[in-house]
Structures are given as structure tokens and as C-alpha cells.
Design a protein around this nucleic acid. Structure first.
Lengths: 238, 238
DNA sequence: CCTTTGTTCATTGTCGACAATCTACTTATT
DNA sequence: AATAAGTAGATTGTCGACAATGAACAAAGG
């Protein structure tokens, strides 16, 4: 029997969501930019209704800031905020790890170990995109096994933001030189999971995320001071 | 000069949100009920557009479950879920308390002590509604001072859910006999805040919320077993 | 009797149009 | 020249209508 796949999303607003996210990731839409419903609607040759829904949904995830009767704006990206986001993420994913300890089977653990191994390979090959993708799958895998849909949803939202941060700041371009620092970042967490130690798993997950946040932050501050130097010839001390 | 307040929410969808929440709180809409856009639109004599937006926003907060092309349904209310919600809330508000420690002024602390005192009074008078209202203001006050808008937003969403839980389960009707158990629930937290001890504040906030969750859960399980007994004459053991 | 195929109706998804509001600019007034 | 009032264009908020989908029920065929 031939394969009859169900038609993928015929829901317009979901395609709009993806389109907007892509536009932000690709830098086409920059933080602070005004998102005009009709412009998107015309470009995608659809009406404003699904565009509106997409914007509202992204606003619920804080990707977009909504101001009544003025419009939608791409959320600003400031380091102060990033620190808070990563702190939040560390708490949420820490809790997810704690809950996942109760549910991960041996097969699940093996899968995680495999992902971790592949990350090591990608790091050695300096393959940043593969590394980031594997890292995301690693975290997702744990969060999916926490059996807490609402927590999962929150984490997805925060993760999307961090993904945007990384892309907007073109972090991945500079990550080559940082990969070695992240290479074995999951090891302590994995051991805690295997030992079925909830406290330890939560703690390690938190540490790991805070560390990743600091790495990004460090890069951002660096870049900014370099940019400033370039712009006004001023030397900014470390 | 007379007060000329700006007209309150001109935005229809906000009024719809409140209307739906009220309907759920009052029991008019029960968990699992199908929310039909046109019905609400006709009853409120507006078009479907703002109703749609309201539903989408409530869905983002997990008050409502959305199924594509089938519609919106009031989120089901099961004890298993409640436990998870309170766990989540304990983590989020715990973090908020930790952050608030850094920002609460002496005046703020006095305000919190006042609220706590008033709660004691309300408890002694067995005034449940006042007690619940004060409790909410107490928690809100702390969360507002965590200087983390996104965390605050998440907490608001989860708090709304717990509020709905309490109302849907008619918990407040039975709370009279439980008030004394909650009366001094904030004391340890207050002391930690005054001592500017972040770890302690987070811990005490968590404990307090988990305890409140258990109280509600205990009541729900009790009620359910009573209901079961009434329905089928079966005796459910503890 | 059970399964499959139509049919009808209720509801959601999408659309184009209009009204209300905001911004930027122009004009008038002191 | 500076401030206030007015105007025009763009954008959001709201509306009513239609198309697409899904659910319940009836009819047909085995």
C-alpha cells in the first residue's frame, strides 16, 4: 500500500509563526522592529487574520512585545535580560531533570549517552551547527520525559528565546573557539541521571545551563565592547 | 478637579477574557466544556474576532485547551495535574522570593508584615474570602519585586490556574475549618526575607506553596471519595 | 446486523472592508 | 520662534460573510 501522509499544517497561522521566527533568526527582523500585519499578509498572500493570531501567540512566548493600538515589536535583546532568561531556564530544566530521573528507562539513558558521544564527535570536528542541534535534542529528550506538559511548554518557550538570542548575536559564528569548553558539559548530569539521584540531577542541570548562559553573555559583552571600540575609537577595559 | 479616568479596557478581547474567567470561576463553564466562539460573541453582542483572541490568550496560559478545527475546551481538572502545577509554582515563586530578597526595602518588608498581620486577623474571624485575597496580594507583592517580568508573567499564569482550581473545587467553602493551619504559614518566609537570606527565602516559599497544594489536594481527594461513596455506595479506604 | 456511503448541520478558519486610533506633518496663532 | 490646532496617511481593532472541516445521523449495500 502506498504511503498517504496526512497533509502537513494547513493552518496558516502556524506557517506565519515559522516565517516570523525564521525572519528573526535570519536577521531580517531585528530586535525593536515594528511588525506590521498587513505587510506580512501581503507578502504571504493571505489575509491579516492568521498573521494576527501568529503574532499573538509569539507575544505569549515573549518573542514579540505587544503594545495596544501601536503594534507588535520584536522583543529587545539586552544582556541584563539574557541573564534572567538563563536563570529561569536553569530552574525550569533543573526541575525537568529532577522529574525525568523517575521516568528515564535504561534505553532512554543509552540514547542520552549516544547523543552525548555524538556531541563530543561534533566538537572535535568543530562542527558547530551539528553540536548545537544535538545539544538541543539532548535537552528536549530530558524535558519530554518529565511527564509535565506545562513545564515542557514553558521550557520550549524559554528555549526558543535562547535560540533566538544565539542566532541574533551570531554566537554560532564565534562558537568554534568555545566548543571545547562545552564538550563534556553534560557528563556530570548524565552520571546523576544514571545514579537516579534527583537532587544531583537538578543541580547539575542548573549548573550546566548557567554556565552556557555565562558563555553567551561573555561573548556578547565582548562583542559589544569591540563594536564600541570600532565605532568611537574608545578603548573599553575588561 | 474631578477625576477623569481613562475609559477602562477599550479592548474587547480583554473583557472577553474576564468574562470567560468569571464563567469558569462561577461554575458556569465546567472543565471539559466546549467553548463556542459564536455563542459568546452573540451573548456579548460583539463579533467573533475578539472572542477568538481571548480564547487564544487563555489557551496560552493553559486555562483552555485548543484542538485545531474542533474548538476550545475548558482545561480538565485532575488532582494528578494539580500536584504538578503546585510543584511548578513552588519553583517559580521560590525563585521570585530569592530575587526579591535583593530588592525589598525596609518599607516593603513592613508592608508584607502588615499583610501578614491582617491575614491573621482574617483567619481569627474566619473570613475566608478576605484571607484568600490578602494571601494573593502577599504573593503578588513579592513577585512584583523580583524584577523579572517574564518570571512574573509565568507566575501570574500559574496563579490564575490555582485560583481556578480553588474556585472550581469550591475549596473556599470548606476552607473555614482549615484556616488555622494556614494562619502562620508566611512567618518563616518573612523572617528569611528580613534576614536577607536568599537560600532560606527560596526554601521557605517552596515549602509554603507545597503545603498549600497538599491542603487543596487533600480536600479534593476527600471530596471525591465522599462523592464516590454517595454515588455508588462504595466505601473508599484511606 | 454491521459496515460503508451520503447528507445535514454546527463550528472553525479565512477573508475583505470599515471604523477607531496613532504618528508625523502642516498650518495657524501668539 | 514656540506652541497649539488641524490634517493626512498608516496601522490596528472590529465586523459580517463565506469556505472548509468535523460530527451526528440517515440511507444503502453487503
Amino acid at each position: 500500500m502506498a504511503e498517504f501522509k496526512p497533509p502537513q499544517n494547513n493552518l496558516l497561522h502556524i506557517e506565519v509563526i515559522n516565517a516570523i521566527i525564521n525572519a528573526i533568526v535570519s536577521g531580517e527582523l531585528k530586535p525593536g522592529d515594528h511588525i506590521v500585519e498587513q505587510h506580512i499578509a501581503q507578502q504571504m498572500q493571505i489575509s491579516r487574520a492568521p498573521v494576527r493570531e501568529a503574532i499573538r501567540e509569539l507575544a505569549a512566548q515573549d518573542i514579540i512585545r505587544l503594545i495596544p493600538r501601536k503594534g507588535a515589536f520584536v522583543a529587545p535583546l539586552d544582556p541584563k535580560n539574557i541573564e534572567g532568561i538563563y536563570l529561569l531556564r536553569s530552574y525550569l530544566e533543573g526541575l525537568a531533570a529532577r522529574l525525568a530521573v523517575l521516568r528515564l528507562t535504561e534505553a532512554d539513558l543509552n540514547e542520552l549517552y549516544l547523543l552525548n558521544y555524538q556531541m563530543g564527535e561534533a566538537a572535535l570536528k568543530n562542527n558547530v551547527n551539528t553540536f548545537i542541534d544535538l545539544d538541543l535534542r539532548f535537552h528536549d529528550f530530558i524535558c519530554q520525559h518529565c511527564a509535565h506538559p506545562q513545564l515542557k511548554k514553558m521550557i520550549d518557550g524559554v528555549q526558543l528565546q535562547t535560540k533566538l538570542f544565539m542566532n541574533m548575536s551570531k554566537w554560532h559564528l564565534a562558537a568554534h573557539s568555545e566548543l571545547h569548553r562545552e564538550m563534556n558539559a553534560h557528563q556530570p548530569l548524565l552520571e546523576a541521571l544514571r545514579a537516579r539521584n534527583q537532587d544531583e540531577a537538578e543541580m547539575r542541570m542548573r549548573e550546566h545551563i548557567i554556565m552556557a548562559g555565562n558563555l553567551l553573555l561573555e561573548y556578547l559583552v565582548n562583542k559589544k565592547s569591540i563594536t564600541n571600540r570600532e565605532q568611537n575609537g574608545d578603548h573599553v577595559g575588561v
